[in-house]
Structures are given as structure tokens and as C-alpha cells.
Write a protein that binds this DNA or RNA. Structure first.
Lengths: 96, 96
DNA sequence: CCTAAAGTTATCACTTATGATAACCTGAAT
DNA sequence: ATTCAGGTTATCATAAGTGATAACTTTAGG
């Protein structure tokens, strides 16, 4: 099992990628994960779309980060890229 | 930052909890995470619902696991429980 | 410049999630 | 047996995600 995080950090060695990454707010963490997974799979939006029996425009919409995709949608996306998703919960600063 | 995973494993020391947990398919991992977060926050469904300006029936629906909640919905839920969510991607068995 | 691949945006129809209300079930305590 | 807190289920209206098609922009190569 290779962690996506490791792959991402490797990609961040690239200054260009790093700059792009830093610019993105945590709001886009999910979108970044999606894009990274697809790129790691070596797929274009169109190819991924075909695997998911949908259209490249819909893939683009997911990766733009301006929507609120369902959990199962994300899982399908990940699986088509050769990944599996899980949620991780960490305590927030403000406890009860 | 205390990891939810640690808390969960602690809870799984309890044989009762463990048995219940093993019975649940990965399909319900998300639902388990939601319920665990709420319980760690010491909240009832009704109390959590009030924090999210919604109704306890809607909380129940999320925790039943038979729907496909949006990512931002999950984040709001987690935050109201004092947690923050992140996605984790791991390589699936079947690569490209 | 021209072309093609890759990605984006706009739009529509359809499906589904969410907000909301109410009734119901369960277990615990008295 | 009653009561009550906690959770579930049913249902409806509304908001939003998704499937689908088409046109557009951008980039890379020739």
C-alpha cells in the first residue's frame, strides 16, 4: 500500500507544483486529492470519465472544487483511479 | 491533535463494541465515523442537530448510512462535533 | 497558422440530498 | 404501567448533485 500523501510530497519537490499547491486554500484539499489521484493513474479527464460511464465535463466539475460531491461519488472516482478513500477525523481546536 | 483512530481502537477494547464493529461492512465505515465523532463529543442527535441548525431526524438519516452525504455536509457534521475531516487515498489492489 | 488533445463552461433534465414536521419505537427509570 | 430521552421512520418541498450534450479555451506539435 503506497500512501497518496507520500506521492503528493514527492510531487511537491517540484517548485512549480509547490507554488500552485500553496496557493490553494484547504477548501480545495479535496479537489487536489482528486486531481492527484487521476494524475497518478495517468488518466485524462476523458479517460476517467469513460471508466465511470460519464462525461469529461462532469469530471472537470468535480475537480474544480466548487461543488459538494457525495461520498459515494468520491469513492467511485477514487476506485476508477486505482485508489480507495477513507475519512480521517482529527480533533478540532475548539472542543466542546 | 488526538486521532480519532486512537479513540476508536480504545473503544474496541470493549468486546461488545468490537463485536458490533466487526459486524459492520466497510460500507458503514463512514457512518461509524460519524457516530463515533458525535459520541466522543458527548452529544445526542438532537443536540448535534441544534448545532447544525437542523433536525435530529436528519442526523439520524446521516448516521444510518443509507444515503450519500455531500463532503461539505460531512465536514459541517464533524466540525460541530469538534473534529475536522480529511480524505485519505490509498492505492487499491488493482492498479491501472 | 492549423490541428488535435485536454480541460472548462454553460445548460437542461433527472435524480438525490437536505430541511422540515410529525409520528413512532426503544430502553431506562420510577 | 407511565413517562421521558434518544433515536428511527415516513413524507413532503426545496436545493443541489449528477448525466448528458455542445461550444468554448488553452496548450502543444506540425
Amino acid at each position: 500500500m503506497i500512501n497518496l500523501k507520500a506521492l503528493k510530497e514527492q510531487a511537491l519537490q517540484n517548485p512549480e507544483v509547490k507554488a500552485e499547491y500553496d496557493r490553494l486554500a484547504p477548501e480545495f484539499e479535496l479537489a487536489n486529492t482528486l486531481i492527484t489521484m487521476r494524475q497518478q493513474a495517468g488518466l485524462t479527464q476523458d479517460e476517467l470519465a469513460k471508466r465511470l460511464h460519464t462525461q469529461k465535463s462532469n469530471i472537470s466539475r468535480l475537480e474544480r472544487g466548487d461543488s459538494n460531491p457525495g461520498w459515494k461519488t468520491l469513492q467511485r472516482y477514487a476506485k476508477a483511479c486505482g485508489f480507495e478513500l477513507s475519512v480521517q477525523a482529527q480533533r478540532h481546536k475548539t472542543a466542546v
